Computed example of a mutant assay.
Amino acid sequence: MKNVTISMDDELHRTTRIEAAKAGKSVSRYIADRLRQPSREEPDNTEEEARKRRLEALERFFAGPKLNISENGRMPTAEERNARR
């Protein structure tokens, strides 16, 4: 683990120290966790985009041509569907 020195004005230091105490963390841990937050949000965004792509693919599939599976105007029975031909 690396150490980093940062400079901040007194007011920012005070509010950061208070927020860290509220979170039950050291100032160092609090700042590190806050810096990690944007990279934690990226997978969610990527996951949401993947979900949207899957949904769009399903919509395209269901909007496509219908499959004609009826025989003589009626649906096949379970026995007919499962019969080995």
Rank of each mutant, 00 (worst) to 15 (best):
R51Y: 08
H13E: 10
G24P: 03
R14P: 00
K25R: 13
A32N: 09
R81Y: 10
A83Q: 03
S28F: 04
R51E: 05
V27F: 07
F61L: 05
R34H: 13
L58K: 00
D10G: 02
K52R: 05
A23Y: 07
R14A: 09
A32G: 08
L58I: 03
K22T: 09
A63Y: 01
L58R: 00
S26L: 06
P65D: 07
R14D: 02
E59A: 11
N3R: 10
E71Q: 03
P65Y: 03
Q37E: 15
N3H: 14
G24K: 02
A21H: 05
R34F: 13
I6W: 03
P38R: 04
E71G: 00
R85A: 12
T46G: 03
Y30I: 04
E49M: 13
K52S: 04
N45D: 13
I31K: 00
A50C: 05
E19M: 04
D44S: 07
G73A: 07
I18P: 00
N45H: 14
P65I: 01
A21S: 12
I18C: 12
E48P: 01
R54P: 00
G24Q: 06
D9S: 05
N72P: 00
E48D: 08
P65M: 03
R60V: 00
M1D: 07
P65Q: 04
D10T: 04
M75T: 02
R85N: 11
R85C: 05
R29E: 15
A20S: 04
R14W: 04
E71L: 03
I6R: 01
L67E: 14
E41D: 14
L67R: 11
K66N: 10
R53G: 01
A20N: 01
F62A: 05
D10R: 05
K22S: 07
P43G: 07
E41W: 09
T5Y: 11
L67V: 15
A32C: 08
L67N: 14
A21F: 08
R40M: 14
K22Y: 08
E56K: 00
M75W: 07
D10P: 00
K2N: 08
R36H: 15
K52T: 02
P65E: 10
Y30R: 02
P38A: 09
E59H: 05
D44G: 05
S70M: 09
E48T: 06
R81G: 02
N72G: 04
E56R: 00
K66H: 10
Y30N: 01
K2V: 10
S7L: 12
A63W: 01
N3A: 15
A21P: 00
S70E: 09
N3W: 15
T77A: 08
D9E: 08
L35E: 14
D44F: 09
R84N: 12
P43M: 09
